[in-house]
Simulated scan of single mutants.
Amino acid sequence: MLTTFFVVLIVALLIGAWHYSVPLGRWLYRLRHRAELNKTDLRPTRVTLDGIEHHVWLSPQSDKPVLLCLHGFSADHRVWLPMARYLQPHFQLVCPDLAGHGATGYSSDWDCGMPAQTQRMLALMDHLGHSQFMVIGNSMGGLLAAHLCAAAPERVSAMMVLDPAGVGSPEPSVMQQMLAVGNNPFLIDSDDDFRRFLAMTMARPPYLPGAVVRALAADYRQRKPALAQIFADFHRADAAIGDALDSIQTPTLVLWGGQDALIHVSAAARWQEATGGVCYIWEDLGHMPMMEAPRRTASTVMSFTKDMITV
């Protein structure tokens, strides 16, 4: 009986250690990525832009309208995968990992500000042979989408922004209040820091095993110096869209989660008024609608663009 007890205890301890293992978490996260990618027609390629080898996930060449998908700060192309399977029957998708992010990697020599990222994305679309395209962006990616519309309005036929950055909100968000006292939630020092940060990003986050959370926390800790520099580049004076937002004539869809803790929903009115766009506030969601409600977000995008799609 005692032997059985110790065997069970040892097995339980091993399972517990395995559950919280960082290597296991990284393996599970890679497995999840492959499973989500296999539900799409996206395939990886590499494109050198501004001397940087960018990793980009592409749909096969087709006559469908091209949709450039721009992720937010500290994220990568994976944020689009839950929604991609709903969009791919209607669009040819282009999902890059921006400089400083994901598989594209990071170097302290790279400029990760909005003007530089804008020129890289225009060069990417040139390289792929897309003279005209639609763009969708979340957070920092939403701001980058606006910069693309301002820099090359003749090339962008529609813009969809999900909780975009770059415009001051009348009411401060939780993150703005943290930044005001010198605490940047993206700069992680512990597992608990990461759990608090993760709770700020989504009101309806997908389930993540404890090992995956620990692995992601470890990756954020490792990336802290890089993220600090990219955050500074992203918040330079030349990153703000400012008055250029009022000049954008591109048909625009604005989606915002009413529970967004990173960028307060009160900023949505400025985006709508400046662009004359269509705006939806989803009170049950947070900062990342494409991950929290991928089918709903995709359906709204398709409804918005249906009259622009001629193929």
Rank of each mutant, 00 (worst) to 15 (best):
G100I: 09
G102V: 10
A103N: 10
G105F: 07
Y106S: 12
S107V: 09
S108I: 12
W110V: 04
D111H: 11
D111R: 14
C112R: 05
C112I: 04
C112S: 07
M114V: 15
M114T: 12
M114W: 05
T118A: 11
T118V: 14
M121V: 04
A123E: 14
A123L: 06
M125N: 08
D126K: 04
D126W: 03
S131G: 14
S131A: 13
Q132L: 00
V135Q: 02
M140G: 00
L143I: 03
L143H: 02
L143F: 00
L144R: 04
L144Q: 12
E154S: 10
E154Y: 01
R155I: 05
V156R: 00
S157K: 11
A158G: 12
A158S: 11
M159F: 03
D163G: 14
D163M: 07
P164L: 10
A165D: 13
A165H: 13
G166I: 10
G166T: 10
V167R: 13
G168D: 15
S169Q: 13
P170D: 14
P172V: 02
S173R: 07
S173L: 11
S173W: 09
Q177S: 13
Q177G: 13
M178T: 03
V181H: 14
N184W: 00
N184F: 02
P185I: 08
L187Y: 07
D189I: 04
S190K: 07
D192A: 15
D193M: 10
R195Y: 05
R196E: 13
R196W: 00
R196T: 09
L198S: 15
A199Y: 01
M200L: 14
